[in-house]
Design a protein around this nucleic acid. Structure first.
Lengths: 341, 341
DNA sequence: CCCACGCGATGAAACGTTTCATTGAGAACG
DNA sequence: CGTTCTCAATGAAACGTTTCATCGCGTGGG
C-alpha cells in the first residue's frame, strides 16, 4: 500500500554525500567532520528518515532484541520480573520481547520458533517443556539462553533462580510452629518445576514433625479461578475433614482460596484455616485477609538474568553461572493467630 | 561466537534445487511438485534451517508484528487487554510486541520510534502525550494505528474505547443514591484522559444533586503506592473533614486506599467511607473489602482494536471506525451498607 | 620540490530472503 | 511431425543497511 519509505539513499542525495557517510554519521560520528554531520542531520529531519531495523539486522546477523518467555503474564511476579529485565536491557540499548507460554509447552515452542526467526540476541526463559536440546542447538548457532526462575538441569546453562525447596520448607515450618497439624498443599500441574519444588520443601518440613500430616490438592493451573475451585472443594467437606492450614503454590491460588473461604461462611481465615501463599505480589498485602507469603526478588531476577546473558554473549568463553536467591517469609494476618482450640 | 547460520542457499544446494524453489516450497507450496517439496523439507530438517525474519521483512517492506503501547503493565486491566489483542493476532498469524509507556510521553515516544524502526504492520496505542501528528505521519508512510481505551480526538483514526464519562457518572450516582454526600475523587495525573473523563462523569452526577459535594485529590500516578499515600493523607485529617465516600480513578488506587484505611484504625469501609474503584480487575473481588468497581471488557477491547487494525491495513480505503463500549457497575461490599448516621 | 601520511569521504560488496521474467521439458493438439 | 500450451524450476534483481578497501587532497617532513 505504501509510498516509498525514506532510505539512506534519499538522505545521502539531499545532503550531497554518499550513503556510506550517512551510515557513519549514524553509527560512527567521530569518523565524520562536524559540518557533514549537521548537513546529514538536517536532511534526516527534513525527510523524516527512520532507520530500517530489518536491513540493519540482516547485515549485523542478529538483532538488539532479547526474547523473554514467561509462564504467566497474569501473574504479577512475572510482570515484575519482566520489568526488571526490560529496565536492565534499556540501560544497555537492548529491548525485550515478551512471550507468554501460559504453562503450555506448545506455546513455548511457538515462541522459541518466533524468537529464532527474529534472530534475537539471546533468550531468557522460564521453561515448561523439555527445551534443553532445543536450547543447546540454539547455542551452537550463536543464540545464548539464560534460565529464569529455574535452576539449570546441568551446568551448561546459566540460571537465575530462587530456592523453591527452601521456600516450601519455610512456609510449612511456619505453619507447624504456629500450631497447625493438618496441612494441605494446593497447586498444580505437577509438571511445573516450581510447584514440585515447593511441595518437596513442604515434605522436608513435615518429615521433621511426625505428628503433622500433609495432603496434596492438585489444580490444573496457578490462577485465581483454580484457587476458587480448590477452595470450594475444601469448603464442601465436613468440618472435621478440612485442613487447618493451606499452603498455596502461589498468591493467585491463595487469593482464590481466600475468596472461596469468604463465601463459605463457616471458614474463617486464619482462625479455622491458616493460609500461606507464594511470590508476595502487591495484592497479597491488600487481600481480604492480608496474606502471609514468600517474597522473591522478582525484578532483581530479571535484571540479573539479563546481565548474565549480555555478558556471555559478549564473551562466549565465559563459564555458565548460577545465581540462587533465598526467599523470605513475610508473615501477615492470614497465618497470624492460633489454630482453633 | 557464531558458526555460519543455515540459509536457503544451503538448503537449495543439499536438496539439489534453486533458491527460488526453496522459497516457493515455503510460501507457495502449490507451485511446486510433490516430490521436490518432500526433498526440500528433508534438507530443511537435516540442516535445521530457520527462516531469517529480517531478510524476509526487508524484502516485504513490513513485518508481521504489531506494536501495542499501553499505559501500565502492572495494571491487570492492560495485561488483559494485551492478552485479548495477542490472541486475536495469533489467530491471524501476527504477533504483538508490547511496550509499556508508564504514563510517560517520553517512554511513549521511545516505543513509537522503536516500532517504526521495526516497520511494524500497525500499532495499537493508548496515548499519553500529543501523538496525533506523529501518528498521522506514520499513516502517510503506511503504518496505521488504532487507539485503544481512548476515543479518537477526531474522526481520522479508529478507536476502541469505553465511555469513561458514563462510568464516572454511574459510580458517583451509586454513591449518592446510597446516601453519601461528601465525595472525594482520587486520581491523577490530570493529563491522563481516562482520569479526566471519569472526573467529568462524577461532576455530571454531582450537578444533579446540589446537596452533595465533590473534592478532588490528585495523585501522580495510578498505582497502589499512590493510593496508599492519598489514603494516609485522608486518614490524617480530623474525622469531620474526611469524605464519606471515595471514588478512585482505578482499582489499583482503590486498593491502596483500602490498605491505608485499614491501617488507620478509625476508618471502616464501607461504614465510615464507601469506596468505588474502576476496571474491575480480578483482585477487586479479593481485596480486604471486596471492591465495588466499573467493569470494562478489557480482552474484547484488545481483540476488537486488533481486528480494526488488520482490516484497515488490508483495505486502506476503509473509513475509521469507533467502537464505544459501556462500563458496567459491579456493586460489592465496599459501597454496600448505609453511611454513618 | 617531492613523498609519505592522515583523514574524510566514497562506492561497491554483502547480508538472506522474495519476486518475476525466463527457460526447458513434456503434453496436447492439429 | 511440428506447433502451441502448461507447468515446474531457474537465476538474477531488489530490499536498505553496514563495512571495508580505496581514493583524493591538503600537510608536514625530508
Amino acid at each position: 500500500m505504501k509510498v516509498g519509505s525514506v532510505s539512506v539513499k534519499d538522505v545521502a542525495k539531499l545532503a550531497g554525500v554518499s550513503v556510506g557517510t550517512v551510515s557513519n554519521v549514524l553509527n560512527n560520528p567521530d569518523k565524520v567532520t562536524e559540518t557533514t554531520i549537521t548537513r546529514v542531520h538536517d536532511a534526516i529531519d527534513r525527510l523524516g528518515f527512520v532507520r530500517n531495523d530489518a536491513a540493519r539486522q540482516l547485515r549485523a546477523g542478529s538483532s538488539r532484541a532479547i526474547g523473554l518467555v514467561i509462564l504467566d503474564v497474569r501473574n504479577p511476579f512475572f510482570t515484575d520480573l519482566a520489568r526488571g529485565a526490560e529496565d536492565a536491557a534499556a540501560e544497555r540499548g537492548y529491548s525485550v520481547i515478551v512471550g507468554n507460554s501460559d504453562e503450555s509447552d506448545e506455546r513455548e515452542a511457538t515462541y522459541l520458533d518466533l524468537f529464532e526467526e527474529q534472530r534475537v540476541h539471546g533468550m531468557l526463559i522460564s521453561p515448561v517443556g523439555e527445551v534443553a536440546p532445543r536450547l543447546r542447538r540454539l547455542r551452537e548457532r550463536g543464540i545464548r539462553s539464560v534460565l529464569v526462575d529455574r535452576l539449570s538441569w546441568d551446568d551448561s546453562f546459566s540460571s537465575v533462580s530462587v530456592d523453591d525447596v527452601a521456600g516450601g520448607r519455610l512456609a510449612v515450618e511456619h505453619l507447624i510452629e504456629t500450631g497447625r497439624r493438618r496441612i494441605a498443599y494446593v497447586g498444580g500441574p505437577a509438571s511445573i518445576r516450581q510447584v514440585d519444588d515447593r511441595l518437596t520443601g513442604a515434605r522436608v518440613a513435615l518429615s521433621e514433625h511426625p505428628d503433622a500430616a500433609l495432603e496434596v490438592i492438585r489444580t490444573s493451573a496457578l490462577s485465581i479461578a483454580e484457587g476458587v475451585a480448590a477452595g470450594q472443594a475444601i469448603a464442601a467437606r465436613p468440618r472435621a475433614r478440612r485442613p487447618d492450614a493451606v499452603f498455596a503454590a502461589n498468591d493467585l491460588v491463595a487469593i482464590g482460596l481466600l475468596q472461596a473461604f469468604a463465601h463459605a461462611r463457616d471458614i474463617r481465615v486464619p482462625d479455622d484455616v491458616a493460609l500461606v501463599g507464594y511470590d508476595d505480589i502487591d495484592f497479597a498485602n491488600a487481600s481480604t485477609v492480608p496474606l502471609t507469603s514468600l517474597r522473591q526478588p522478582a525484578a532483581l531476577i530479571g535484571a540479573t538474568a539479563l546481565r548474565f546473558l549480555l555478558e556471555e554473549a559478549e564473551d562466549p568463553g565465559l563459564a555458565p553461572r548460577q545465581a540462587h536467591y533465598q526467599p523470605e517469609l513475610v508473615v501477615r494476618s492470614s497465618s497470624a493467630s492460633a489454630p482453633p482450640a
